[in-house]
Computed example of a mutant assay.
Amino acid sequence: MSEGRAVQATLIWAALALAIGVPIALAATSEQLAWRGPVYILAGFAGIIALGLVLVQPLLIGGYLPGLSAYRGRRAHHWIGGALVAAILIHVAGLWITSPPDMIDALTYASPTPFSPFGVTAMWAIFAVALLALLRRRLGLRLRTWRIVHIPLAIVIVAGSVVHCLLIEGTMETMSKAVLCALVFAAVVKVIADLWRKRSLRSSSAWDG
């Protein structure tokens, strides 16, 4: 790797670390934590980490993170997906422990809080993708079929997660939260656009041939 590419790779990884780390660090300094119990705090930070993992996923599958081969990127995508599911389970379990009635309302789409339905919808979409990924070989899903299913669910995950996060007035600092959400949205748009362009090029080449 040339010196220029090495510097570029370092900057990309540093930018990703800052995009995820700064919101977490600023949330850790929030005055609201003084009135929260440890379980609630754990649940909240699990949610923040989950949003950071949602950013990493399209970057991996799009091959935008330097130093990772296509194979390693896909493997990392699978493992990060598992970590994302774990973070969501911790987030939901923690909130359930602190307030079961509120979580029942949220899971049944009866909560009066405007952010709840977006988060719950994103959660179910994440679980659906994880389940389909586990059963993909058994179901015999080809890559094209997998993408037809996965991409709409990914859009639901990103849209639901971003809106859920932006509507919550909690421990996250406003500006860093907005930047992280914007990056998550931009990353998935970039991946979908690149996949669409590659598919169009392949179709055009096949037609010309």
Score class of each variant (00 low, 15 high):
residue 137 R to H: 15
residue 17 A to K: 14
residue 126 I to S: 02
residue 37 G to E: 14
residue 177 K to D: 07
residue 199 R to S: 11
residue 76 A to P: 00
residue 177 K to W: 03
residue 183 L to W: 10
residue 93 A to V: 14
residue 10 T to S: 11
residue 191 V to C: 00
residue 209 G to R: 15
residue 85 V to S: 12
residue 41 I to K: 13
residue 199 R to T: 11
residue 141 L to C: 10
residue 203 S to N: 14
residue 29 T to A: 04
residue 28 A to R: 01
residue 164 H to N: 13
residue 184 V to K: 02
residue 125 A to L: 01
residue 73 G to H: 05
residue 168 I to K: 10
residue 9 A to L: 06
residue 18 L to I: 14
residue 89 L to N: 08
residue 28 A to K: 01
residue 206 A to F: 07
residue 17 A to V: 09
residue 39 V to R: 14
residue 170 G to S: 12
residue 155 I to V: 12
residue 141 L to E: 13
residue 35 W to F: 09
residue 140 G to L: 08
residue 206 A to K: 11
residue 70 A to G: 01
residue 143 L to T: 07
residue 58 P to L: 08
residue 185 F to N: 01
residue 170 G to E: 12
residue 88 I to G: 03
residue 10 T to V: 11
residue 45 F to P: 03
residue 161 S to K: 08
residue 176 S to A: 13
residue 151 I to P: 00
residue 18 L to R: 14
residue 128 A to H: 03
residue 95 L to I: 07
residue 113 T to Y: 10
residue 58 P to Y: 03
residue 121 T to N: 06
residue 197 R to E: 06
residue 120 V to P: 00
residue 111 S to Q: 03
residue 64 Y to I: 03
residue 19 A to H: 12
residue 146 W to D: 04
residue 157 I to N: 00
residue 84 L to S: 06
residue 102 D to E: 13
residue 149 V to E: 01
residue 29 T to L: 08
residue 153 L to G: 03
residue 11 L to I: 14
residue 175 M to K: 10
residue 67 G to P: 02
residue 44 G to T: 06
residue 26 L to Q: 11
residue 122 A to P: 04
residue 166 L to C: 12
residue 120 V to M: 11
residue 175 M to C: 04
residue 153 L to Y: 03
residue 26 L to S: 07
residue 86 A to T: 08
residue 93 A to D: 07
